[in-house]
Design a protein around this nucleic acid. Structure first.
Length: 652
DNA sequence: GCTGACGTAAACAACT
DNA sequence: CAGTTGTTTACGTCAG
């Protein structure tokens, strides 16, 4: 009845031919519109389903990667043991008595101490080993000592293993106690030291601050003694290193930039009607969301509901750790940014092996970007994706292939007008992201398919090989296989640029570059010369934002992802980088933008249409309830998320 | 509002 | 017969 033909008619097919060759073709039978209308109930149902995004989510949400975000980031959680989710779960359950808290902390500290001792021991052992090796090199020693050391090391490793098992047991016991809930989707219990998530010295300092602040406000403040961590002894020598590593701010600021109630109270005295815990008429105390009509009632509520009691202090402590996590995240991302910038800087000065003339962003501008990309110096950019961002009005520039072919059109959104070039190096770098982070690649199926085919040695792939490439290169395509595979097939069939070739082994798909280049370029408002050179244009913004999102997801702040993405600072960071890069491009002359279809297809630079994953501020607007966010587990195809997890033999 | 690109869903046929 | 491959259409979204 409905639908197209089959394989037999497929071989010589092409759209224009299909009418002739396909007896079953709609067109052949009198044209598309004449097809059996939506009278049939199935179709109606299908349409209705589709209207809702078929799986309960609007297409846009899926496209924006919003849907996948939560489960993805949960899965990507780094092994910092106490994650914000777990903290929140602890919070929600509120079964945590002060005693339990204390016990928990003490256990962790004890574990941490042991671990540190072990690590020191390990270090010493390693030094010893190295020393001995050196000695051996010089004097040609007997292997006996070596063996000894080796056994020692082995013993030590076993000890470490025991430690880790201990930690696991600890976590398991926490689970049993209901203090922690490990989601089924979460990775196995990590073996990292608990200390990564909690730094006792800092915590204690913070705790001191908090408690002293409370004591200052309320002279009593004795009922929280059970929570007072200052009584817990911590080796003064051990944790400092960890602190420095884990919290670079400690070294720069000299102290943690955590909002303690004390500071908040000060700040809200300065601004009588703005309180960090009050916004949109709602109490922003984690997990509260009580509606307070005015500031006075909020204050009342704050004093009554969130007075100094065990619960509040526990919540406060959790919040501290949340902040710490975020700071860690920021530090990580800063580092990453720095590395990226450094890398690009180096790269741009390196001689390129690429055959085409290059027109790279100058290293000067790049390093300028790097130096100015710090949040402090960012111009305030509206966080609304649709809000105007200084468009680039410059001519195109070309950044040609390195090891990878440029991917091609980027799935567009919002920022087509910000037609900034993207380097294939960026894509290559992002490949690593996409391999591991389940972030939807911002490229169209067509360009990805083409990429897959072009990457193959013979520039041809079977359908199955294309599938494999997708799953290998993009974590995102390791799920919902039915959907994207269908899309791949659909694209292969639909686009003229993909040519099916009968092979000995069967059919393979190749790319007709000329056809690929012929595809209708996106119009660019403004400089008409851009249109001509559109096909050499790429985008920085998309990978950057994707990277941003990926890194957010990757670094275990899924619950805060929405918040973080709505966070002006991060939002600004992205836009600022974008603007910086735009600015950089303004100084770049592009005289080598020849990527027209006339060029040798395999060498051509392919069109990339700028598309930006939206950082939907709506998602983060209003009171952000941690609990709400934590509980936000969209009933997004749970039943099929993993069912069609491809069994990929060649997946890493 | 129109149009094209794109993504998703689905029906169907041929093939394995 | 089930699964895969290939084709086609419908429809929604987005951006120019």
């Amino acid at each position: 009845m409905r639908g197209g033909g089959g394989r037999a008619s497929a071989k010589p097919r092409r759209r224009s031919e299909s009418c002739v060759r396909r007896p079953f073709s709609r067109k052949a039978l009198g044209g598309g519109p004449a097809r059996v209308p939506l009278g049939d109930s199935q179709q109606l149902l299908g349409a209705a389903g589709r209207a809702q995004g078929a799986r309960g989510f609007p297409c846009s949400a899926r496209r924006a990667g919003l849907v996948s975000k939560v489960p993805v980031s949960v899965a990507m959680m780094t092994p910092q043991v106490i994650t914000p989710q777990q903290m929140q779960q602890i919070l929600q359950q509120q079964v945590l008595s002060p005693q339990q808290l204390q016990v928990l902390l003490q256990q962790q500290q004890a574990l941490m101490l042991q671990q540190q001792q072990l690590q020191e021991f390990y270090k010493k052992q390693q030094e010893q080993l190295q020393l001995q090796l050196l000695q051996q090199q010089h004097a040609g020693k007997q292997p006996k000592e070596q063996q000894q050391v080796a056994t020692q090391q082995l013993a030590f490793q076993q000890q470490l293993l025991q430690m880790q098992q201990l930690q696991q047991q600890h976590l398991l016991s926490l689970q049993r106690q209901g203090l922690l809930t490990i989601q089924p989707g979460q990775p196995a219990l990590p073996l990292q030291p608990l200390a990564q998530g909690m730094i006792p010295t800092e915590l204690q300092q913070l705790w001191k601050e908090v408690t002293s602040a409370h004591s200052a406000e309320e002279s009593t403040g004795s009922n929280h003694s059970s929570l007072d961590l200052t009584t817990t002894c911590v080796s003064s020598s051990a944790p400092s290193k960890t602190s420095l590593i884990m919290n670079p701010h400690a070294s720069t600021n000299g102290q943690l930039s955590v909002h303690t109630p004390k500071r908040e109270s000060l700040s809200h005295e300065e601004h009588p009607h703005s309180h960090p815990l009050y916004g949109h008429g709602v109490c922003k105390w984690p997990g509260c969301e009580a509606v307070c009509e005015d500031f006075q009632s909020f204050l009342k509520h704050l004093n009554s509901e969130h007075a100094l009691d065990d619960r509040s202090t526990a919540q406060c402590r959790v919040q501290m750790q949340v902040v710490q996590q975020l700071e860690l995240q920021l530090a990580k991302d800063k580092e990453r940014l720095q590395a990226m910038m450094t890398h690009l800087h180096v790269k741009s000065t390196e001689p390129k092996a690429a055959p085409q003339p290059l027109n790279l962003v100058s290293s000067v501008t790049l390093s300028k970007s790097a130096s100015e990309a710090s949040p402090q110096s960012l111009p305030h950019t509206p966080t609304t994706p649709t809000a105007p961002i200084t468009p680039v009005t410059q001519g195109p520039s070309v950044i040609t292939t390195t090891s990878m072919h440029t991917v091609g059109p980027i799935r567009r959104r919002y920022s087509d007008k910000y037609n900034v070039p993207i380097s294939s190096a960026d894509i290559a770098q992002n490949q690593e992201f996409y391999k591991n982070a389940e972030v939807r690649p911002p490229f169209t199926y067509a360009s990805l398919i083409r990429q897959a085919i072009l990457e193959s040695p013979e520039k041809q792939l079977t359908l199955n090989e294309i599938y494999n490439w997708f799953t290998r290169m993009f974590a995102y395509f390791r799920r919902n296989a039915a959907t994207w595979k269908n899309a791949v097939r659909h694209n292969l069939s639909l686009h003229k640029c993909f040519v099916r070739v009968e092979n000995v082994k069967g059919a393979v798909w190749t790319v007709d570059e000329v056809e690929f280049q012929k595809r209708r370029p996106q119009k660019i408002s403004g400089n008409p010369s851009l249109i001509k050179n559109m096909q050499s244009s790429h985008a920085y913004c998309t990978p950057l934002n994707a990277a941003l999102q990926a890194s957010m997801a990757e670094n275990s702040i899924p619950l805060y992802t929405t918040a973080s993405m709505g966070n002006p600072t991060l939002g600004n960071l992205a836009s600022a980088i974008r603007e910086e890069l735009n600015g950089a491009m303004e100084h770049t002359n592009s005289n080598e933008s020849d990527s027209s279809p006339g060029r040798s297809p395999m060498q051509a630079v392919h069109p990339v249409h700028v598309k930006e994953e939206p950082l939907d501020p709506e998602e983060a607007e209003g009171p952000l309830s941690l609990v709400t966010t934590a509980n936000h587990s969209p009933d997004f195809d749970h039943d099929r998320d993993y069912e069609d997890e491809p069994v990929n033999e060649d997946m890493e």
